[in-house]
């Protein structure tokens, strides 16, 4: 299809979609209105479950099945990337040379890494109290590990990142979330039911299963992001086609 025809089809589609969407916007309730029935019910339920952060309560208690689906999307995307970015037959792994890094940057990296790690763990732990949660904290922890690559060099990162362990943690995090859900069934209530004691409001152990699910998601997200970045780093820095000139795939 020629570029011109594609532009015509695209413009027609965009105009029609825009018209449809603007017509819909005129019937939407005004921005900032006070009619939020589901939200009010969710806040009441969150307070009843002694969970200070209502968003975490919706995520890990009221609509926990959505979060199970979301974590499984992350889990399968990482598994897909492991499969897609694997080293195929005609490729070999070449360790990249050490990158020359100014001393100040190296010191900054080594100093800030533990601080970032602590912040990430703090965000996971306080998931059901202050803003944050398993996913946000998990990504911060994973980024802190990669400070070694950014501020020091790739070899330093590889030393502290055994891939087998992180893949095990990835699978364990996903299985932990599912089994925590099954605990509700075993306790006689429904799947993913919050049957643990709810604890006192606004404390670290409040909210029954919410902090546990938070921790499971934190473990899984941390290891997922580490494995994901490991394979992207591997492809970009290490994997070369067998004989440098001819590429492993089709000759252009």
């Amino acid at each position: 299809m020629t570029r011109r025809l594609r532009l015509w089809v695209l413009t027609a589609g965009l105009l029609a979609t825009a018209a449809l969407y603007v017509a819909a916007c005129t019937d939407l309730p005004a921005f900032g209105g006070s009619w939020h029935p589901y939200g009010d019910r969710a806040v009441r339920a969150a307070l009843q479950q002694h969970t200070a952060n209502a968003v975490s309560s919706v995520n890990f208690d009221q609509r926990a099945f959505d979060t199970l689906g979301e974590e499984t999307v992350l889990f399968s995307s990482v598994l897909g990337t492991v499969v897609l970015l694997r080293r195929t037959r005609g490729e070999k792994r070449v360790a990249p040379g050490p990158a020359e890094v100014p001393a100040a940057l190296r010191r900054y990296g080594l100093l800030v890494l533990p601080v970032t790690l602590l912040i990430g763990l703090y965000v996971i732990a306080h998931g059901q109290l202050s803003p944050g949660g398993g996913f946000q904290g998990g990504v911060v922890v994973a980024t802190s590990l990669h400070l070694l690559y950014i501020a020091v060099d790739y070899k330093a990162l590889e030393r502290i990142r055994p891939l087998g362990l992180f893949e095990l943690a990835d699978g364990t995090g996903e299985a932990a979330y599912i089994l925590l859900g099954a605990a509700g069934l075993i306790a006689g209530s429904a799947y993913l039911a919050n049957t643990l004691p709810l604890g006192t409001f606004n404390t670290l152990s409040s909210g029954g299963t919410v902090p546990l699910l938070n921790a499971a998601v934190g473990v899984e997200v941390t290891s997922a992001v580490v494995v994901l970045l490991a394979h992207f780093l591997g492809q970009a820095l290490e994997i070369e086609s067998e004989d440098g000139a001819k590429d492993g795939g089709r000759e252009a």
């Binding site: 006070s34 939020h36 589901y38 939200g39 969710a42 806040v43 969150a46 307070l47 200070a52 952060n53 209502a54 968003v55 309560s57 919706v58 995520n59 609509r63 959505d66 306080h126 109290l129 202050s130 803003p131 606004n202």
Partner: peptide, 21 residues
């Protein structure tokens, strides 16, 4: 924001469900 760690429980809050989505 509907985060009651530093907020009285009856304060007007935004819809938490859309934030979860």
């Amino acid at each position: 924001a509907p985060v009651f760690s530093d907020l009285p429980v009856d304060a007007p809050v935004v819809d938490p469900v859309v934030q979860a989505l």
